[in-house]
Design a protein around this nucleic acid. Structure first.
Length: 420
DNA sequence: AAACGTGCCAACCGCATCACC
DNA sequence: TGGTGATGCGGTTGGCACGTT
């Protein structure tokens, strides 16, 4: 049995005359490849044969293992670990010239002894030219916390709200910094609830309850808004496509892959929605309470400005009216009292211009809770190194960092996970 | 100076989902 | 419609850097 098995292995390997150098036995054949009953001497003997010219790394192409599971290309024979500058250079040069195309095919084309998966990761998490690196700003931190409260560990969705940050970077930052800080403050970083017995929430239960209600409502609000937006976006796209010459792109042509809409990104995890075919870096929704006039729009900031706002006022108003009715039925006051709620990426220039520094999701989250302005916005002051991060309502009186976290605390305390 | 502990982050792994046939 | 390969995503790990003892 054993004999025939390894005969089979050798036959298969023989069919691949892959000549590669400098690979040790265990680099070309995974340990799991061998039956546990095989003694180490036999393994070494077999390895010696496998290491012979013509057999090296051929196991990478071998099919089912004795366990019946096919081997992934990156399990065997290919280089792992940190990337060298030379490899980076090769990968960059190849992608700049040809694009990445099929990641699986890329390594051989680029002359890299890596699997496609590794190349993709290296590109998306490190080499991509539009990646922002370095210290996270307070605003980015706040955005991450807010979105995490809404989305949970959906790092890719969160990353779409933090332009130029990768999901991996955000995930790492959360795990190494933010989670610990929340935990220190007595907040469960998973549920964003006050941990039992923690000092959090003892000051003002009513306020906490309102914050929870606000956050929960926020999720519902966003869901309804996105539903309307998604429909509008699809319709607008179709209209735009029908009326626009085909040579006029929606997106800058030099963008290889337009960034997915953050807000549309939110929609998917919440509603399990299918992919929408419209991308924009944000969307805005404005309610003006007195006359129930509503504008629902999707806009994209510079340099690629195209607006759907007002494309079809009747339809937009219909969507928003329905949403307003829904909110009224839920006893929501915020949408009716003239507040302007705009959700988006707080760090984006368009966002700053539209709603002012420091506003945005936080406002919405805190609207009606009594926490808002003093809870979170005023405390956006200084980062750890003392550098002013935001021009908004910085207290400037030394509260800065601590009050910032107090604001976060007020926001997330006792909140319920959305849509569960 | 050495040993040890901790923080950090790039990279890996496995599963889920998508796309294509 | 099911199968298969490609890709995306989130959890986890390995190893380096730095601080502490």
């Amino acid at each position: 049995m054993l004999h025939s098995y390894f005969d089979g292995v050798m036959d298969v390997l023989s069919s691949f005359a892959v000549r590669l150098n400098n690979a040790s036995c265990h680099e070309i054949v995974p340990v799991s490849f061998f039956p546990p009953s095989l003694c180490s001497t036999s393994v070494e003997l077999l390895c010696t044969q496998l290491s012979a010219p013509g057999f090296r790394k051929a196991a990478a192409y071998y099919g089912p293992t004795p366990m019946g599971r096919s081997l992934c290309c990156d399990k065997v024979g290919l280089k792992k670990g940190p990337w060298t500058p030379e490899e980076d250079e090769k990968l960059l040069a190849h992608i700049e010239e040809h694009g990445h195309g099929s990641w699986r095919a890329l390594p051989s084309k680029a002359g890299l002894q890596r699997c496609g998966k590794s190349c993709r990761l290296r590109w998306t998490n490190y080499l991509r030219p539009d990646i922002k690196r370095g210290k996270f700003s307070l605003q980015e931190e706040q955005t991450i916390i807010q979105l995490h409260a809404l989305l949970g560990n959906r790092w890719s969705a969160i990353a779409t709200h933090l332009s130029r940050r990768t999901d991996n970077e955000i995930k790492n930052y959360w795990n190494t910094h933010l989670k610990k800080r929340l935990a220190k403050m007595g907040i469960d970083p998973v549920t964003h609830k006050a941990a039992s017995g923690a000092p959090v929430g003892t000051a003002d239960d009513v306020r906490s309850a309102k914050a929870a209600a606000s956050l929960s409502h926020m999720a519902q609000w966003e869901s309804a808004r996105l539903e309307a937006e998604g429909r509008l976006a699809r319709e607008s796209t179709m209209r735009a496509a029908a009326s626009r010459p085909t040579s006029v792109p929606l997106h800058p042509i030099n963008l290889p892959e337009p960034a997915a809409s953050p807000c549309l990104g939110l929609l998917q995890p919440w509603q399990g929605a299918a992919k929408l075919d419209l991308e924009s870096p944000t969307s805005t929704l404005t309610f003006i309470g007195n006359n129930n006039s509503v504008s629902l729009g999707i806009s994209e900031g510079d340099p690629t400005t195209w607006r759907l706002r007002g494309d079809d006022p009747e339809r937009e108003e219909d969507s928003a009216r329905r949403f307003l009715r829904q909110q009224q039925m839920q006893g929501l006051e915020g949408a009716e009292r003239g507040d302007e709620h705009i959700i988006g990426c707080g760090e984006e220039p368009w966002f700053q211009e539209t709603v002012g520094v420091g506003a945005g999701l936080t406002d919405v989250l805190l609207a009606g809770s009594g926490v808002g302005a003093h809870g979170a916005l005023e405390c956006w002051g200084e980062s750890g190194n003392g550098q002013a991060e935001h021009g908004g309502q910085v207290s400037g009186d030394g509260e800065s960092s601590s009050s910032y976290w107090s604001g976060i605390l007020g926001m997330v305390v006792s909140s319920e996970p959305p849509f569960l």
